[in-house]
Design a protein around this nucleic acid. Structure first.
Lengths: 205, 205
DNA sequence: GTCGTATCGATACGACCGTATCATTCGCTC
DNA sequence: GAGCGAATGATACGGTCGTATCGATACGAC
């Protein structure tokens, strides 16, 4: 039957595409997007170049898929942010979110470098830029909700433009990741941590 | 005499190197660092590929020089920041500095994209990263001085860790530029402006 | 078992890369 | 004006790029 052979193939295909995307991520973290080619990605994924070529007809498609995978990863990360009553104050939750963005291991550091590479590419490719812009919109909305809740709880210094503060937080996140991406391997993140503490301290009443 | 023919040549050489660097900047702003090759840069600078090759023995040297030119440009921009009594408060001066970083024309927007490309490269090349780190150190020192002066003048909300705030400002600058770099051509910078107003408002007492 | 058929690794091709080398031209000295 | 050294534009070369194409192989239908 058609379905019996198509469905398992489909999952296999998807998992293979993901494997290839992760191989691309490893290369991008190590050598930047300049080091990414159909051949190098295939070698990193331990498959033939033809396999990659068949899976993604063109290099742009490959790049776009790998980008989307990276975007979904961080979108998931933000998706776990929940506003409302908990055992943490909203501002403290925000502080934890920002601190949680900092890379704590090799893999996290690699993620920031992958992000830096894609970020620079977004300055060139409008499609990438649009995706990032959509991610911004989502994050901004979430931040505004969190800030409004915090204000209603009396956690914030009064008289702040919450939309503007949310915008600032977006800028800070970009700056944090780009700053981490260019640090040497074993560097301290004290500067980034201090920046987070500063913006949190400025928020609190 | 040796000097009579060497000195003018030297000036000429330096101005030509600068021309080449600016051609590279134009390409990097348009197509990213991936679009930069000895040949494309030479064509953009309207000279033979051999000329570029002779001026910079290797592509890395070319890239490094163009990077240094870009760094010097923004270092100059920060160098004009003067602390101390003037017709502006220190905080207002800081606000103007941040707003002045935003691109106001095509050339400014191109600068942010060039910066984004080099920034991503710094995630790969430790030499680039070191240069950026040195620029950070310089800027941080300047910010701390400005903030200390502002505090002494009573312009700041009390009880702030000024080193941490300076660190935050560095992060914000990175975030602002990277955010601008990936905006479409005619975009509004209202988000970036709001972020600046937010961080200034958070600073003020 | 045989035969389409779909999937695979391998190869081919034209283009561009960074770099080395070279013939030519130009400007200067004598 | 002749001669020479430096500067220049063009070409050569080995390599990698993205992509198209091809022979081999595995596999389900009959």
């Amino acid at each position: 039957m058609c379905q019996n052979e198509r469905v398992p193939k489909a999952v296999d295909r998807e998992s293979r595409r993901r494997e290839i995307a992760e191989a691309l991520h490893r290369i991008a973290a190590r050598d930047g997007l300049e080091g990414v080619s159909v051949r190098t990605v295939a070698a990193e994924a331990r498959m033939s170049a033809g396999a990659v070529q068949r899976e993604f007809g063109t290099k742009d498609e490959l790049l776009g898929f790998a980008f989307q995978v990276a975007v979904d990863e961080v979108a998931d990360r933000f998706g776990h942010v929940r506003i409302g009553p908990g055992h943490l104050t909203s501002v403290e939750a925000l502080r934890q979110v920002l601190l949680g963005l900092l890379p704590t291991d090799e893999r996290g550091l690699a993620r920031t470098r992958i992000w830096a590479a894609f970020y620079a590419h977004a300055a060139i490719d409008p499609l990438f830029a649009e995706t990032l812009s959509a991610l911004d919109d989502e994050t901004r909305t979430r931040f505004v909700q969190l800030l409004e809740y915090a204000r209603d709880q009396g956690e914030l210094a009064p008289g702040k433009d919450l939309e503007a503060v949310a915008e600032l937080l977006l800028v800070v996140i970009d700056g944090l990741w780009m700053g981490c991406a260019r640090l040497p391997d074993g560097s301290s993140l004290d500067g980034q941590r201090a920046a987070i503490e500063a913006v949190i301290a400025l928020l609190e009443r």
